[in-house]
């Protein structure tokens, strides 16, 4: 077995075993931390698809994370206030069903990624980074200036949404939902990486001209990848909103985009389980350093700087050795 496969298995089992153990010993807080790891990792799995495989440096993935969050927030807000979202052609009163919320989150963030991708993928390099960052900020300001859904203060959802046959208020059961979705997300990105589509995507990153000469349009491949990437991150946003039972415009902030990107980088770009390693490391740092100093983000910054300057390949890259999917 390859070293990376062993590390991946250890991460997958560890992320499941730790909260189960915490459930047995009654440490609710550890379960919540693990749930955060799973959700953030899912958001980063989404970005990793665009960034790692496609080389599309999106600094605006907070847009999809936030839209997923607000999809949950708005649907549940209307349901809990018995205030229908629309009454024509039929009455839709919002919903507290996670399954419906997830579908809406996937569609909304997918549509947003399609529009933003159509615009930003016309550019490349530094332009692409700046444009994605700017569109993320646009949505931030839009939701800040939209008083109906909380404006700057965001809005709270009193009860976590429902999932058939599951008590979602039980921390371990909600964790398992998030864990299963994370594994599904990883499975999807594993399948994509090996599919003809994924190969074309990676080839467009490495040499777009050659891809074009064999009759594939890099723009369409990239756009499709960008949309799928945004949808996965959007789903993670809906889960994060459900975990916190709160949505606010900070989900859209450029810091959120930066954090999702840090997760990918700390774990290792284009590594299948890089997002999981990155999210686990980030949450551990937040937990440990946050206890030591209020300025823990400065240490994260210093660590990130060292990783970028000296340890390309991130955590999994340093543990598993030679980079495999990075050119």
């Amino acid at each position: 077995m390859r070293r990376e496969t062993i590390i991946n298995a250890a991460l997958a089992i560890g992320l499941l075993a730790i909260p189960l153990w915490a459930h047995v010993t009654g440490e609710i807080f550890t379960i919540t931390l693990s749930t955060r790891v799973a959700i953030l990792a899912l958001a980063a799995v989404g970005l990793n698809l665009a960034l790692g495989l496609g080389g599309l440096i999106s600094f605006g993935h907070a847009a999809y994370f936030g839209l997923g969050g607000y999809a949950m927030g708005i649907l549940a807000f209307h349901a809990q206030n018995y205030d229908p979202i629309f009454t024509w052609p039929f009455v839709f009163a919002g919903t507290k069903q996670m399954l419906v919320i997830w579908v809406v989150a996937l569609i909304v963030s997918g549509l947003a990624a399609f529009v933003i991708g159509m615009l930003t993928l016309r550019t490349s390099g530094a332009y692409f980074i700046m444009a994605t960052l700017a569109f993320g900020q646009m949505l931030y300001y839009l939701f800040v200036s939209w008083p109906k859904y909380g404006g700057e203060d965001g809005m709270s959802i009193y009860l976590r949404n429902d999932f058939p046959g599951v008590n979602t208020l039980d921390p371990i059961q909600f964790f398992l939902i998030c864990y299963v979705l994370l594994m599904l997300g990883i499975f999807v990105s594993w399948r994509i990486a090996r599919s003809p589509f994924g190969l074309a995507l990676q080839a467009s990153r490495q040499n777009a001209e050659r891809v074009e000469t064999v009759g594939i349009t890099p723009f369409r491949i990239r756009l499709a990848a960008f949309v799928i990437s945004g949808m996965i991150t959007g789903l993670a946003g809906a889960l994060m909103a459900d975990l916190n039972r709160f949505v606010g415009p900070t989900m859209f902030s450029w810091q959120t985009s930066g954090e999702i990107m840090i997760l990918v980088i700390l774990g290792g770009v284009a590594r299948l389980y890089g997002p999981v390693a990155g999210a686990a490391l980030f949450i551990l740092l937040e937990h440990w350093l946050g206890g030591v100093s209020d300025y823990w983000l400065a240490f994260v910054g210093a660590l990130l700087l060292l990783v970028v300057l000296f340890a390309r390949g991130g955590l999994i890259g340093s543990l598993a050795g030679r980079e495999v999917a990075h050119d």
């Binding site: 440096i57 980074i129 930066g258 910054g301 990130l304 700087l305 970028v308």
Partner: peptide
């Protein structure tokens, strides 16, 4: 470049 300068923002 983005990552390193983002790290600088944090610092």
């Amino acid at each position: 470049q983005v990552l390193a300068t983002f790290a600088l923002i944090l610092i």
